[in-house]
C-alpha cells in the first residue's frame, strides 16, 4: 500500500514538473507514467480515455482532474486523491512563486522590461493558437449540420462576450441550454 502511494507521488511529481504546454500536452506524460504500470493495475487505457472524456465534461484543468481521479482509483481511498492532486500542484506552485518574486524584484531592469515587451505579442499569438487548435471535430462535431450549429453558437458567444457586459459564465450556461435544445 505504501509503495502505491510512493509511486503515485513520484509519477505526479514528474507530471507537475515536466508538464509544459497545457493540459493536452500533459496527457501524453500521464499516459506514459501511469497507464499500464504494475503499481496501479486498476488504471487501464480504458480508464485513461474515461478520464479524458470526464475532464471534457467537467470544469477544471485536466491535470487536476486526472490526478484526483487516478489517485482515487489507484489507492481506493480519498487520501490517494489528495496526495496525487497535492503533488501535481506543489512543484510548479513553488517555481511560480520564485519566478514571480524574481521578476517583481528586477522589474526595472532592462532584461525584464525588454523581455516582456517582446513577450506581449507572442502571448497574443499563444492564445490565438490555443483557439485554433480547439477548432476540431471534438469541439465542433463531424457532420455538416453539427458544424453549422456549433459555428453559430461560437459566433454568438464571441459577439456576446466581446460587445456586451454579459458575464462569460452566463454565456457558458446559455450555450449549455441551447446545446440541450438543438442537439
Amino acid at each position: 500500500m505504501l509503495t502505491t502511494y510512493l509511486r503515485l507521488i513520484w509519477a505526479y511529481l514528474q507530471i507537475g514538473l515536466f508538464g509544459f504546454g497545457g493540459g493536452y500536452a500533459m496527457l501524453s506524460l500521464i499516459q506514459r507514467l501511469v497507464v499500464g504500470n504494475d503499481w496501479c493495475p486498476t488504471i487501464t487505457s480504458q480508464t485513461f480515455t474515461d478520464i479524458v472524456a470526464i475532464s471534457q465534461m467537467t470544469p477544471g484543468p485536466i491535470g487536476i482532474n486526472s490526478a484526483t481521479y487516478i489517485g482515487y482509483v489507484a489507492t481506493g481511498s480519498v487520501l490517494g486523491s489528495i496526495v496525487a492532486t497535492f503533488t501535481v500542484v506543489l512543484p510548479p506552485f513553488v517555481l511560480m512563486l520564485c519566478a514571480s518574486h524574481f521578476i517583481a524584484r528586477h522589474q526595472e531592469s532592462a532584461v525584464i522590461k525588454g523581455s516582456f515587451m517582446g513577450l506581449r505579442p507572442v502571448v497574443v499569438g499563444l492564445i490565438a493558437s490555443a483557439a485554433l487548435l480547439l477548432m476540431n471535430k471534438e469541439n465542433f462535431g463531424s457532420t455538416s449540420m453539427e458544424v453549422i450549429k456549433s459555428v453559430a453558437i461560437c459566433l454568438a458567444s464571441l459577439g456576446t462576450v466581446y460587445f456586451t457586459k454579459i458575464h462569460p459564465i452566463l454565456v457558458i450556461i446559455a450555450a449549455g441550454i441551447i446545446g440541450y435544445l438543438i442537439f
Partner: peptide, 23 residues
C-alpha cells in the same frame, strides 16, 4: 449531458478567441 456539452464546447472556443482581440 452529451447535448449540453455539444453546446458548451463551441462557446468555450469563443471564450478563447475574444481575449485574442482584447489582449
Amino acid at each position: 449531458l452529451t447535448a449540453i456539452f455539444k453546446g458548451i464546447r463551441p462557446a468555450v472556443v469563443a471564450l478563447i478567441i475574444a481575449p485574442v482581440i482584447t489582449t
